[in-house]
Design a protein around this nucleic acid. Structure first.
Lengths: 217, 217
DNA sequence: TAGATTGTTAATCGATTAACAATC
DNA sequence: TAGATTGTTAATCGATTAACAATC
């Protein structure tokens, strides 16, 4: 009630995972320290911006030296809440679901898929990630038993809204939607859409521009 | 040389696909006109912002009435360069590749996957999207023959950079990278990374905040 | 100490929004 | 005409960047 909520700009939070990715790479390469200048090169972010972003959370560097890589990794992980394990629910065990389940980048960041659901009885009982595929009717029970707060939707588009509703009702707070459907969720649930079409349309603009330029006599 | 390049803010270009998605939905529902106010509700964007965004490209509305839905759809598609067909190359025919190939949201926006490649000889010759899987050694030939400018990387992470290099060398200008690897491309190639970890880490911050709040005594 | 690089302030820049005259 | 809603200006807001004193 006395500590103010410290309104952090959205842009800062978006850049932290970017810094983190590069820092983990640096740590892996055995770099012990890194300057904001070097980090700026690697992330295409202005060094002053990096320093300013970090000061929102404290002072992590040493003047004249730079930032200690392992320490900064831990600090950012802590800020993001990525310093402990999170259980995920994956709904849909088709091609897309299988790709996500096999992807171990998630595990490296502490995201463990501990529940997988599918509607198709033939897929129920199969292995996926490190668990067994449940029928979707079990969703509410399994998710609340495990206290899962993060869900991934990888079902056919027409089922997306229904699945989102089920996840929400079961207590999920973050939803990653891999279908192109716009789904509605209550205000206290954070939704992220991952639609290749969106990205393509966006970049397409720049392609059209340069092609027009070279095509125009 | 005389018409100035009309520097359009990045944010504007990012929002256009969002507007387009909703407008296509509205058109499908038979809505003939829409106001910026209504569009604002549906997209969570300030109506003034929508109007201002559109004026970068002309005046498409009618005062007192709103915007004609089919017309605005066509205008935005034209601005983005999505008013004609684009051929795509997909590299990687595993689970993820198959999911992308089967996804018909791409086709609806004029993105046709006309070339698929894989390293595994057992997959070569299989059907994928509307075409046959080629061996990756054929990549340069097929892409340049078809004049493909957009490529999707859906291979194991360790091969990402190599594939990016091959695509770039073959003349591809836009790359969608579905691996978690940070790949390097020349400045005239636009790269988009789609990494679930990034999104999750980002949203996680907000989850941690609210949980801390309720957990702190 | 001299050199380097942070943390932080102040200046710049650009994007968002409110307001309203134009006009359908 | 009265009501609605755009296009556009001007005001606000916030984010980025340059600059530099603090300090390792």
């Amino acid at each position: 009630m006395s500590a103010k909520p410290q309104e952090i700009p959205e842009g800062v939070i978006e850049r932290l995972p970017l810094y983190l990715g590069v820092l983990i790479q640096l740590r892996h390469d055995g770099q012990s320290t890194v300057s904001s200048a070097r980090l700026g090169e690697l992330t295409d972010v202005n060094p002053a911006q990096i320093r300013r972003d970090l000061t929102h959370f404290g002072s992590f560097g040493k003047r004249g030296v730079g930032y200690d890589v392992p320490t900064l990794v831990e600090r950012i992980q802590h800020i993001l809440g990525a310093d402990h394990i999170h259980r995920l629910a994956l709904v849909g065990a088709g091609n897309l679901g299988a790709a996500i389940a096999n992807y171990d980048g998630l595990r490296q960041h502490g995201f463990h898929i501990t529940a997988v659901f599918d509607k198709d009885p033939r897929r129920v009982g199969e292995k996926a990630a490190d668990t067994i595929v449940h029928h979707i009717d079990e969703l509410a029970r399994v998710i609340s038993e495990q206290g899962i707060k993060i869900g991934i939707i990888a079902v056919p588009p027409e089922a997306a809204q229904e699945v989102a509703d089920m996840l929400t009702a079961a207590g999920v707070r973050i939803i990653l939607n891999y279908t192109p459907m716009l789904v509605r969720v209550p205000p206290d649930v954070t939704l992220h859409n991952t639609d290749p079409v969106h990205e393509l349309l966006h970049t397409l603009y720049y392609l059209s521009r340069t092609e027009d330029a070279s095509a125009s006599r």
